[in-house]
Design a protein around this nucleic acid. Structure first.
Lengths: 225, 225
DNA sequence: CCGCTCGACGTTGCATGTAATCTAGCGCGC
DNA sequence: GCGCGCTAGATTACATGCAACGTCGAGCGG
């Protein structure tokens, strides 16, 4: 139809993937929802080919599960899966901090401190949404500093899965001040340039989140809400 | 054509993926080779749909690179990529050992020691191929013991990439005895049940491989041969 | 009333048609 | 001789046709 309308020239499959991902991460498509190719195709206004490709990519990133000959459903991660995810994330986030400590320049540290200041302000204001956003940006910046593209990609995948699984939990203001404190310790470690210290700071941050998770109440189905 | 001939009932795309992967890992399709959909389709005797899907999966696992509107080529990993891969692997293999140390039972340890004994025999016999196989099986067993499916999947992807990048290097008998020694230290650590010790043993094993890599000669194009 | 079979529907997986895009090779002008 | 545009072929990305399969519910038999 529209040959050059809407979004900048990029593949239909790519755009379908992005749209689908946003819908899933925003719980517009709740976990457990079936993703049938014709449905998704019609919903996104594309043909079945790009829809199928988009679903495959979503599944590959762990946001949906596919059973051969049966189709895909939006991933509904239980507590055990989240533990797995956090275990891997702890190791990788530690690595990110270690590498970042060896590569960060003064300007990078300053940028992180700036982010941190904004974060403090958000927490003091009790702005949960902004806290969440700044938390994401902090970690994104650190893994960018690490300069390892595979590490970055993997951490982003894990982040997405967590975002999907803890859609509501994330918004609870519980650990906001603690997160800021731990982020500050990470920045301090990065500034010191000590890779061992940096790794420890990064790991303990994630390890604490994992412990909080284990301590938290689960609903009867083994999921966090 | 053949409705039930050959391979056990499984999707064409799946079989195409497996065949393509084997061809790539065995350097039947050398790094840099173009993977055009019609070519692969004809070569594997399937239509373009499953061929396209197989190539996409191969690319997703890092065994090929795709440039939009230009097609895919078998990945030709340079030294920097290998460093990235080993950095991530170090962190994940450490995690695998840590988790395994908490979950391994006596029987598991015994099985590892059995593998180790076979490995020793292979090394003493100078059987490089068998050394390589047993090395792979050792690591596969450890990550299986870790009981974290995401960790396992990620380590397998990394292993494949390494196998592709160091097709020839792997066959050099250089570090065979060292590998066995380090594997024994890993088993000892697993048996001790000390997660910190186990993680350190796993990490240092991979870290040593990374150091060897950095010390090795590179060819003029930045690749290891 | 309950279980079972059968059939209609929807979906997946594969095959194939087609427009837009990219690449390579050739010839032309400078 | 050298660089440049242009055309021809190949290739990607998307659209769509179609058979096999799985699911679910209605109707039948016990």
């Amino acid at each position: 139809m529209t040959t050059e309308t809407s979004k900048r020239e990029q593949g239909l499959a790519e755009r379908a993937y992005l749209a689908l991902r946003e819908a899933i991460l925003g719980h517009e498509l709740a976990p457990g929802t079936r993703l049938s190719v014709p449905n998704v195709a019609e919903w996104l206004g594309v043909s079945r080919s790009p829809a199928r490709e988009a679903i495959a990519r979503i599944a590959y990133e762990g946001l949906a599960h596919v059973e051969p000959n049966k189709g895909a459903v939006v991933a509904d991660l239980d507590a055990e899966s989240l533990v797995e995810i956090y275990e891997v994330r702890e190791a990788l986030e530690g690595l990110a901090c270690r590498l970042a400590s060896q590569r960060a320049h003064d300007g990078d540290i300053a940028a992180l401190r700036d982010l941190l200041a904004q974060h403090v302000a958000a927490v003091e204001a009790g702005d949960v949404e902004r806290h969440y956003d700044l938390d994401m940006r902090f970690h994104a910046r650190v893994r960018e500093l690490a300069g390892n593209s595979r590490l970055t990609a993997q951490l982003e995948v894990l982040q997405q899965q967590i975002r999907l699984a803890m859609y509501t939990t994330h918004r609870s203001p519980g650990g906001m001040p603690l997160a800021v404190t731990e982020h500050r310790r990470i920045v301090d470690a990065l500034e010191s340039g000590d890779p061992v210290l940096a790794e420890a700071a990064g790991r303990s941050h994630i390890a604490r989140l994992l412990r909080d998770l284990s301590a938290a109440e689960k609903d009867p189905t083994g999921r966090y809400r």
